[in-house]
Design a protein around this nucleic acid. Structure first.
Lengths: 199, 199, 199, 199
DNA sequence: ATCTAACCGAGACGGTACGTCGCGTCTTTTG
DNA sequence: CAAAAGACGCGACGTACCGTCTCGGTTAGAT
């Protein structure tokens, strides 16, 4: 019998939205995801708490959108990976870049927090795959497809599986801190994966 | 100025400890990790909150030890994996078992929660690797070593890397819910990994 | 660095306020002042603890206001003492009434508690004098002033001092339980005081 | 059916007792009566908590005994008040001394605390009258008795009442902070009381 | 041009849990 | 066996946030 009050997005204040995103990002980098409260976000953004509760389900959702807004702002037309014709070299380049990125302490905290939330929140996981991981994976698969056509990867290879073999060990090692992330490690993963999917 | 009061473990009440473990496990399966409070654990265990704070750093630590106590209680002498001489068959058996295990909703919640905490808590991660993951990994590496001696795996293969290639994709797919966990998927990972590490 | 958050009295919930007063009075008479906790008051009143901490400095302050609310509710237009023209008779009447009042066990506990708090809390003492004792003392002084004009008390007598001589021995004897409080004792105090201040 | 375990006072450690007294007095002057805990006393005295609970009923009892020990230590053979033959002068001297004493901030806190406890604790009140107030009152009454014999005070005067008239206003004014304590005030009380009890 | 419905900031509210303090009891170890 | 040491169950503390709920004040779109 509940009268589902549904706010009208047309009337939404873009100014508040941006202020909330900004406050959220600042607070996360200042005190860490776990110590960020909705109260603090609202106070910092000069927004009422209700304005947050009206538009987001949870703190995780606010945080997610805050980062999404950032990444969308900086998004180039299309995500494109290098294609020199040499899949091994191209992949190693990309994987080494990922390794470097993961070493940046500024990215560390929010990405870890995001991953932790995703594990327990299916909705958030779906959004993550659709909005953040999806586009990047598409670009990677495009490059792999090109390699497939060039006969460098088995024609019947499942490209999702290729990506998992390449990246899952890397992510796991980073998330669990179970070993060092070196360029050599990246190279080894590329070599092994290509060997596994050799035609 | 703080005087670091350090409790004397010799005087610790084993009865309270066990009651806390039991209460923790029950509460987690009843209301889920996120909804378990230290207050509730203490109440259910008939213990004072201070008794928990005296011996554990955080809720995550209590939960971890609760499961650790369980696993140690049920631990067989030595962890041993089947060794029929056929590494492919043996690995597929084990991986399919893992897939089945992950489908059990009773294990799902606590394992997800544990993984989420591990991501953000280096201490907990270290303990996890040492106390829980470690013994299992040793057993798996023992089996892989046997296969290595039998010439089924390259002699120079890094066995940690073999395990990562085998399991990381599986774990990631499960944690991110990014795809179905089927026996065929398990088989495919074994096949690919063995191919990648073929002598 | 603390940001002194100051609540806005205009938005205060009168309903909560009254419920807290009621709960406080009930609890005091049920378990005694010392055994009343703010936690219990909040629970009984169906209020959050913060609602109490937001508006009162201490348990003593809540209790004080609770009684103040009572006394204000029951306050007759103006406090008036009998004036038959015979100051001695009038004072004896009033003092004997006080003696009787002090014998009532229902009033005993809270009044003792209030006096104990007042001793250690200057703010509370000031409030007590202003809100509770003040009006009563004014009425008494008015009657004494009338006696002064009638030449029954020295014209230069300090009326505050008269009241102290009359009441302080009575209060002290009651608070310290250092002797019986009888009508004769009341009469004696009146006689002595009048003699001391005879013109 | 409780087996009332009664400790044997003969075996009591005098060293602990003194250490507890010393710690109690120090803590009271450092943090104030209300903020002194039995835990803190035990810790400071290097005593076990049980040692305190074995020998005292309450914090108030420990504090009381601590001060009692002090006053007994410094007690001169017999308490004697000056007797110049002029009761008015002698009383004014003593009352002015009391006024001065009450102005000393070092004595203020503990005496206020003691009075607050006495109001709510009949046992403590009895002990106070017997051990602390008693001897002093006896001395004062001895002086008044001498004045009575000299015809300066009515022969049928109740000396307890004389003392109440003299001191109760002073104590009340101090405890309630309801007015200034000046030498003139002391003198006025003496004058009024002597007038009230003039033969 | 003026309603009027909605969002907005602000923040009080009933709650839950936090992590700490101290109580009074109990147990273990030391002299 | 008293005493020191201190762990224990317990209750309350005062604080931080939760998510809900008014309040006025502003700001649109519909009248």
């Amino acid at each position: 019998m509940s009268i589902a009050r549904k706010p009208n997005p047309a009337r939404r204040s873009e100014q508040s939205r941006q202020a909330i995103f900004k406050a959220t990002r600042e607070l996360i980098s200042e005190v860490g995801y776990a110590n960020v409260s909705i109260e603090a976000i609202a106070a910092r953004a000069g927004a009422g708490k209700q304005t947050i509760y009206r538009w987001w389900r949870s703190k995780a959702a606010v945080v997610f959108d805050s980062f999404l807004a950032l990444s969308e702002a900086g998004r180039q037309e299309e995500m494109m990976l290098p294609d020199t014709g040499d899949i091994e070299a191209d992949l190693k380049l990309v994987m080494r870049a990922t390794v470097t990125e993961f070493a940046d302490p500024d990215f560390e905290a929010p990405i870890r927090a995001l991953n932790a939330e995703i594990i327990n929140d299916p909705d958030l996981a779906a959004q993550y795959r659709e909005k953040l991981a999806g586009p990047v994976e598409e670009a990677k698969k495009a490059r792999l497809c090109s390699a497939q056509r060039a006969g460098q990867i088995a024609a019947d290879a499942d490209l999702d599986l290729v990506l998992e073999l390449l990246y899952a060990p890397l992510y796991q090692r980073w998330l669990h801190r179970s070993g060092p992330l070196t360029p050599e490690y990246a190279d080894a993963l590329v070599d092994l994966t290509l060997k596994a999917f050799r035609p």
